[in-house]
């Protein structure tokens, strides 16, 4: 059983700069978190009073404008940001795919980097070495895997990172935008592998602007606006509300 429980969670980012005082003017803005000027330090309220409970089988897509707090919410679930207010309780192993190349070493070979990445994702050295051949095979990078990854193209590096990320199945999967890889031949195999990854994790939380991706992988939508929870419910219903609000604000 995996679960994610957020109870009245608030996150404030203090803006520490020698120029804090001059920033402290009331600003009207429709994007981003709300700036607060009452404290001694200017703060940006990234999340405000977020309460939600996720259980096994929940595949949640997070929608919202830029700066609505999507990535911050992902990072709260990943354990990066301890909330300033409220309570977070998470049970299960979490993997946060906000940077797929974290821990990679440009001077080391592809094989070595498969092991490094696996370690960062929580495997032991032995497990990582056992898993490496199948990951290496999936990348189709062949003898390139023996070369330092600095010789790789951007696309090749992404393939390598993708192959490791999708080889490990966490209880709770946290993703910022869909992970995907360029070239058409690889893309088909990649899609299959992503599907497996998503269905093997008990809880999926993904932030995305692409509705087709949300419809393909999610069953719930969480709608954030300026750090507040505007809606959380079944996918089509919430997407419709979100779309209606956006067209209202345009007209």
């Amino acid at each position: 059983m995996a679960s994610v429980i957020l109870d009245g969670v608030g996150v404030d980012f203090p803006v520490y700069t020698p120029r804090s005082r001059s920033l402290r003017q009331q600003l009207t803005q429709s994007l981003g978190g709300r700036l607060s000027a009452d404290a001694r330090v200017v703060t940006v309220r990234a999340l405000d009073d977020i309460s939600l409970a996720l259980a096994d089988g929940d595949r949640v897509g997070i929608v919202g404008a830029n700066g609505a707090g999507k990535t911050t919410l992902l990072r709260v679930i990943a354990g990066v940001y301890p909330p300033i207010a409220g309570r977070v309780a998470i049970s299960g192993k979490v993997a946060a795919y906000t940077d797929l190349t974290l821990g990679m070493d440009m001077e080391s070979s592809g094989w070595e980097n498969i092991v490094y990445r696996s370690i960062y994702l929580g495997l032991g050295f032995r497990q990582a070495r056992v898993l490496a051949p199948s990951i290496g095979e999936f990348t189709e990078l062949g003898s390139y895997l023996d070369l330092p990854v600095r010789t790789y193209s951007q696309g090749m590096l992404l393939r390598l990172a993708f192959a490791v990320a999708t080889a490990i199945h966490p209880d709770i999967l946290v993703m910022d935008e869909m992970i995907g890889v360029g070239d058409p031949h690889f893309a088909d195999r990649a899609a299959e592998r992503v599907k497996q990854l998503m269905y093997n994790s008990r809880i999926l939380v993904i932030a995305s602007h692409a509705q087709e991706i949300l419809r393909a992988y999610c069953n719930k939508i969480l709608w954030l606006e300026q750090g507040r929870l505007r809606g959380f419910g079944p996918i089509e219903e919430t997407l419709a509300q979100y779309a209606a609000s956006r067209s209202a604000s345009i007209s």
Binding site: P82, V94, G122
Partner: peptide, 11 residues
């Protein structure tokens, strides 16, 4: 993957 990080604990 890791278990619930200690930094989340409010103690």
């Amino acid at each position: 993957m890791h278990e619930v990080p200690v930094i989340l604990s409010s103690q």
